[in-house]
Design a protein around this nucleic acid. Structure first.
Length: 271
DNA sequence: ATGGTCGGCAACCGA
């Protein structure tokens, strides 16, 4: 059976709830992972999601900043939220899909929002960049992010790093720009390799094809300039990799009225 | 080389 899992940095779920509804109705994901919900759990628009058919929700939100959520048409077995870098800043949540979702074998799903890291790419003077590097190191070292050989797992979200040359509009001009500096790209690679995760977006769309999921709000004409970055990712364990039939980047949503600066990415799994 | 725009929430912080 096909299982569709989408990820989207929504940059305020309450402000953009109508846009989320439009995406849900059109793309029909089974599970939607959100980042930057900017919404305390008691203010999350549960009723709206319920009306749309997404009755199962796992939340890790707070007032004003960051926040992640997983909303689903199929029930979870369990969920958990973890803290990184000794902070309670709501950057991770995970669920397990299993029997109740009609699966014979469980799938663990992680939803991440890695710190953006500020503007200055020097950890000595910019604590936000240091935090980002520490966060990536902690992901690498995390035992819970190393799926066993046969385990089916998927990790999605806004990882705030565009690691490959063709994940940015200009590799050369981006080398000193936070999101594409060598040190953070290397740390992201190590986090991925340490868990033996596979970068499924690049399996299905290999370089040198350009692949972006984010376009700055600051561009006068984001579409014409097309100075995008691939900040959002879909990683799977080896056991799940062969079952990903398709990943789509819904670029049109960047052109919506009052858009997020990120667009939805949706993976279809044959499970 | 520089500054450009958002959202939350009520002055700036974070992105």
């Amino acid at each position: 059976m096909p299982l569709k899992i989408a990820t989207w940095n929504i940059n305020s779920v309450r402000l953009r709830i109508d846009l989320v509804a439009k995406f849900i109705k059109s793309a029909r994901p089974d599970v939607l992972c959100l980042q930057e919900t900017k919404c305390p759990d008691d203010a999350f628009p549960l009723k709206r999601f319920k009306r749309l058919g997404y009755e199962h929700v796992a939340l890790n939100g707070q007032k004003g900043y960051h926040g992640v959520a997983i909303v689903s048409r199929v029930p979870f077995e369990r969920s958990s939220a973890e803290n990184f870098c000794g902070k309670t800043d709501c950057r991770h949540i995970s669920v397990v899909l299993g029997e109740r979702a009609g699966l014979r074998e469980e799938i663990t799903l992680h939803d991440f929002y890695v710190p953006a890291g500020g503007d200055e790419p020097d950890p000595e003077v910019n604590p936000k960049f240091q935090h980002k590097l520490d966060f990536l190191d902690e992901m690498r070292a995390h035992a819970g992010l190393r799926p066993a050989d046969k385990a089916r797992a998927i990790l999605v979200g806004d990882l705030n790093v565009a690691p490959l040359e063709h994940d940015v509009w200009s590799h050369k001009q981006m080398l000193k720009v936070v999101s594409h500096t060598p040190i953070e790209c290397e740390k992201l690679d190590r986090a991925r390799d340490s868990g033996r995760w596979i970068d499924m977006m690049r399996v299905l769309t290999p370089e040198p094809a350009k692949l972006y999921t984010w376009w700055s709000y600051r561009a006068a004409d984001w579409r014409a300039a097309d100075r995008g970055r691939r900040l959002d990712h879909v990683w799977t364990s080896g056991a799940l990799a062969g079952q990903v039939s398709k990943i789509t980047v819904a670029k049109d949503y960047r052109g919506a009225e009052r858009p997020s600066d990120h667009v939805p990415v949706m993976a279809t799994l044959e499970v």
